[in-house]
Nucleic acid binder design. Structure first.
Lengths: 171, 171
DNA sequence: TATTGTTATACTCTATAACTATA
DNA sequence: TATAGTTATAGAGTATAACAATA
């Protein structure tokens, strides 16, 4: 806030680092998301896919509209996402007998198996990202992040990757 | 890692939260990035704009190629970014007299003023994101994040928003 | 008439490849 | 021939609007 510029006149390399925790959070969060995306790509899945699989596994039988509402996403997007997962044989659309407009969403057996793989990958990912910290430090970090998450009013388990901005703009 | 499914059969709301620090980092990092983007949007700027302004301010007179290399971005993208900032009168392209192929990039006076605004906004942003924590907690969080950033080999001051993935895919 | 899922369309961000001017 | 900047083009992701089937 005080010293302006700090003009580091070195020939190479990028600008001097902002040292605030907010910037570190952005930098690290993006990095962690990228690493996770790379890992699940080995399963042929994207991070949005994971969110869908996880949500469907938790409460099977819900409609696409309900799913869209949960994730804060437009229904037409759920169509495309489910199309992919359906094509891969991971989820099933079952026409509701009560209200034939609805599709009840379920994980297939293969979908359940793949989701198990995802959990394994997530654990390895966690260990990779936090490998600089010992157990005590990890616990403290988790606690501090939990406080921030709660105060910022973020929905537990749904990260803001599902938002309603056009063009997929991210920072 | 151990308990599968955990089937919480509640009628509403999204899936149960993964509680790992890596997920919290992703969730929080995305959130922080979004908030920051919203704030700088009031200046008519995007987060990539900020990175460019910051880098140019730090080492004025460099070429677009050098800037692209610093940010890990393709040169054609720098063209579009600079076009916008040039059109707003925030940066200037000056044909180099030594090698007339080069454009030396400089901040205009207005650009410097706007960058000052950005710093003010960044400070407010920092305070907003961390408002759940007292000074001691903030210091500890910053320290822990710094350890993780260093171990993960991230370039200080350049967040991975500048990468080389097609389609702008993010998690 | 209202709602579910769907299709058609458009827009943003970003990369790759081809091109121009300069060296 | 090689390099700096540029333009043209393409693709992914996502939203909005129009539409068909069902209620």
């Amino acid at each position: 806030m005080s010293s302006e510029r700090q003009a580091v006149e070195e020939p190479g390399g990028p600008a001097p680092a902002p040292r605030g925790a907010a910037f570190l959070l952005t930098q690290l969060g993006t990095h962690a998301a990228d690493r996770f995306a790379t890992r699940v790509a080995e399963l042929g899945l994207t991070p949005p896919d994971i969110g869908l699989l996880r949500t469907i596994a938790t409460r099977p039988g819900r409609s696409q509209r309900a799913l869209a509402a949960d994730l804060g996403v437009v229904p037409s997007r759920v169509v495309a996402l489910i199309d992919r997962l359906d094509g891969k044989g991971l989820v099933e659309r079952r026409r509701s007998t009560e209200d034939r407009r609805n599709h009840e969403l379920h994980l297939s057996a293969e979908g359940g198996r793949v989701l198990g793989e995802v959990w394994r990958i997530a654990a390895a990912h966690e260990d990779d990202i936090l490998s600089a910290l010992d157990d005590d430090q990890r616990a403290r970090l988790t606690e501090l992040l939990g406080l921030v998450v709660a105060q910022q009013g973020l929905t537990p388990g749904v990260h803001p990757g599902y938002r309603n901005l056009p063009g997929g703009q991210r920072s």
